[in-house]
Amino acid sequence: MSLWTWFGLTNGNVSTEWPLKGDAHGQQGVLGMPRYDPAKCQDACDACAQACVTHAITFAPGSGAQVRAEVDWGRCIVCQRCTEVCPTGAFSPSAEWAVGVTGRDDLVWAEAPASGAASVAAGGTGRAPRPFRRSLHIRHVDAGSCNGCESELQALNNPFYNLHRLGIFFTASPRFADVLLVTGPVTQAMRGPLLATYEAMPDPKWVIATGTCAVSGGVTGGNYASGNGLDGVLPVDVYLPGCPPNPAAIMHALLLILGRTEQRIRGGRLER
């Protein structure tokens, strides 16, 4: 008997039952997207913007003499530097990792979050999730990533997450794919192959921008060799920031496509 067979027999089924039931998503105690409370901002303080390497936090003149931070979680790499340098707690740590959205504008902090229907129309394709009754097949394309997202994608098929139990599979051929899952900022070298893959997929087809690079370009976006993510290249159905997004967050994004879960962030505000 092999060592791994013995290990399996003695330990039993190690796969989580989440999201079908329970909350064993494997991310307990892990820091997620920071929270932002503009009421705690200190006048003439821009420590957060100075620390933000991707310009997810910027400043623009507000009403009167006030200057308020403009926050775009779609550019955030979840490095936590803003929470470390903020002197007032306006940016604070959170454990919220399920930040996939169907509309790009929902990743931008707003005073009054848009309603569900309005937010989908603002920045997303506006399509309702397809009611898949059988399996869902994914074609992954690395459009210039650092492979951080790929390491999380690999974890989806490990014994704990076991993505197959949900009827979701990766496929090598775009002709059998329902979803195009893209990582990376879309480099010049990968733009052509990415478009060719999308065109080879049968309709209806869906696109997930996975990781901050695919959402907005990330740290290296906009240089001589890289684009600024998928916007303007392909129609995006789900935006999932993170550097990288963890396996549970990727599963949440896939379940958004399936219509089997709810979006948890609107108008840049994290659900409490």
Rank of each mutant, 00 (worst) to 15 (best):
S2Y: 02
L9C: 07
G12V: 14
G12C: 10
E17I: 02
E17K: 13
L20R: 11
L20I: 09
G22L: 12
G22C: 06
D23S: 13
D23H: 13
Q27A: 14
G32E: 01
G32N: 05
M33V: 09
P34M: 15
D37E: 14
C41R: 02
D43R: 07
A47Y: 05
A49I: 09
Q50Y: 14
A51I: 12
V53E: 15
T54K: 04
I57Y: 10
I57Q: 12
G62N: 00
A65P: 06
Q66G: 03
V67M: 08
V71P: 03
V71C: 01
I77K: 02
Q80L: 12
S92A: 13
A95R: 03
E96R: 07
E96I: 06
W97S: 03
A98Q: 14
V99Q: 02
V99I: 14
V101F: 09
R104P: 00
R104Y: 00
D105Q: 14
L107A: 00
V108P: 00
V108G: 00
W109S: 01
S115N: 09
G116A: 13
G116C: 10
A121F: 05
A121K: 13
A122R: 14
G126I: 11
R130Q: 10
R130W: 10
P131K: 13
R133T: 15
R134G: 09
L136F: 12
H137K: 15
V141H: 09
D142W: 03
G144K: 02
S145L: 02
C146H: 01
E152Y: 11
N157C: 12
N158S: 14
Y161D: 00
N162M: 09
N162F: 08
N162D: 15
L163F: 05
L163S: 07
H164K: 12
L166A: 08
S173R: 13
P174N: 06
P174V: 09
P174Y: 10
A177F: 04
A177S: 09
V179C: 05
V182W: 08
V182H: 07
V182K: 05
V182P: 04
Q188E: 14
A189S: 14
A189Y: 08
R191E: 11
P193N: 07
P193T: 12
P193C: 05
L194C: 06
L194N: 01
L195T: 02
A196F: 02
Y198S: 05
K205M: 08
G211P: 11
T212D: 00
A214S: 11
S216Q: 08
T220C: 05
G222H: 05
G229Q: 04
G229D: 02
L230N: 13
D231N: 10
D231Y: 04
G232V: 04
L234I: 13
V236P: 07
D237T: 12
L240V: 01
P241G: 06
G242D: 01
C243P: 01
C243N: 13
P245I: 13
N246R: 10
A248H: 02
A248S: 11
A249F: 01
A249V: 07
I250M: 12
H252N: 11
L254W: 09
L256T: 15
L256R: 11
T261Y: 02
Q263G: 01
Q263E: 13
R266P: 00
L270F: 07
L270S: 04
